Simulated scan of single mutants.
Amino acid sequence: MLFDLPSPDILYDALVARDDRYDGQAFVCVHSTGIFCRLTCPARKPLRENCTFRATVGECIEAGFRACKRCHPLQAAAQNDPVITDLLARLEDRPDHRWSEPDIARLGYDLSTVRRAFKRHFGMTFLEMARQRRLREGFETLALGGSVMTAQLDASFESPSAFRTAFAKLLGCAPSDLKSDGAMRATWIPTTLGDMIAISSSSHLHLLEFVDRKGLPAELQKMQAHTPGGLGIGRFAPAEQAASELDDYFAARSGRFETPLAMHGTDFYKRVWHALQTIPAGETRSYGDIARQIGQPTAVRAVARANGSNQIALMIPCHRVIGADGSLTGYAGGLWRKQRLIEIERDLKATQAAERRSIPA
């Protein structure tokens, strides 16, 4: 059981309002049609007496309901939007292109529609995503020993100052501040839910964050200031291991992370983070659950602060902590991403259960 579902009345109100707080956390099964949907489905709303609510897609299917063809509950929500699908494909085909609003308009898309769709699903606009993609090209050039000028050209920025400004805004330092021989090195890791930055020493992973996390520049500046000689750029073995394990994770092949981690925080924070690591992939806990697990049942707010201070995303799975009522609550990487992470882990859990059932006794 991932969490106790809120009352059917609360979930029905969420269905009527298309409230995304429970999207992916609960599904509605409509008895009059035999179909199950996301709570954000745009279809006409069924009568209350025709609805039951279940926590997983698997439960809906086992009860004999078919997936809705409008909200496609078997897919990630963003994949249902043809505008997003088309623009993401174009971005992959032309990662070095300096995309602009006139480019989008020439494709026949309404600018405000595109902006809203990308903000809703990814927490950033398409143009912000395209710029981030170009910055990755420049970062990887620097990691291979290229000059700042070469990195700027590879990232298709119009001037050195524009590249430096964009780089510093995202990473909290100028590209020239990252040396190739640092004792701690920054690595850019692409994933299916957005690019991540990893900071590792030769023995441990110290930071793993999505690059669009608002607090990332400040975190990197702090790490830069406390690292003798400053941060470098490139991959140590822990970052290589992390990249490999993330590939398996996002492909729903494995939920295990064995990369050695360096946790920077108080003893209390570390106790919370260790408790987070005990939550199995495919399950969730509330802040109150974690507080009780560490023996301090009244420290719910402190647990929430520790959760938000975690600098090693996914491997210390703060995304598995939800509200006591089953809502997603806050996540620095964006609620859309938190929902998708939980969906990935549900798929993984279901796959592993099926594999176990197929093994002869």
Rank of each mutant, 00 (worst) to 15 (best):
146 G>T: 09
283 E>V: 05
21 R>D: 12
357 R>A: 14
229 G>L: 11
181 D>W: 03
351 T>E: 11
279 I>G: 01
171 L>V: 12
204 H>T: 14
55 A>T: 13
311 Q>G: 07
256 R>M: 08
173 C>E: 15
84 I>A: 03
137 E>R: 08
2 L>S: 15
274 H>E: 15
133 R>L: 01
284 T>C: 07
156 S>C: 07
354 A>W: 03
11 L>V: 05
283 E>P: 00
106 R>C: 11
264 H>L: 05
328 L>M: 08
222 K>Y: 01
138 G>F: 00
349 K>D: 13
232 G>I: 04
188 W>D: 02
226 H>T: 14
178 L>S: 02
345 E>G: 01
1 M>D: 15
292 R>S: 06
111 L>C: 07
197 I>E: 12
343 E>N: 10
206 H>I: 04
276 L>E: 00
90 R>V: 06
143 A>G: 12
331 Y>D: 04
278 T>F: 02
320 R>T: 02
120 R>E: 14
342 I>C: 07
357 R>N: 06
44 R>L: 13
254 S>N: 08
146 G>R: 02
111 L>T: 11
291 A>C: 05
36 F>Q: 08
163 F>L: 03
55 A>F: 11
262 A>W: 13
304 A>H: 05
211 V>N: 12
361 A>F: 14
181 D>I: 03
81 D>L: 05
148 V>T: 11
129 M>A: 04
121 H>G: 06
325 D>V: 07
116 R>K: 09
275 A>C: 01
352 Q>S: 10
148 V>C: 10
65 F>N: 11
32 S>D: 13
188 W>F: 09
149 M>C: 04
133 R>C: 02
270 K>G: 02
351 T>S: 12
56 T>S: 15
196 M>E: 05
59 E>M: 08
47 L>K: 07
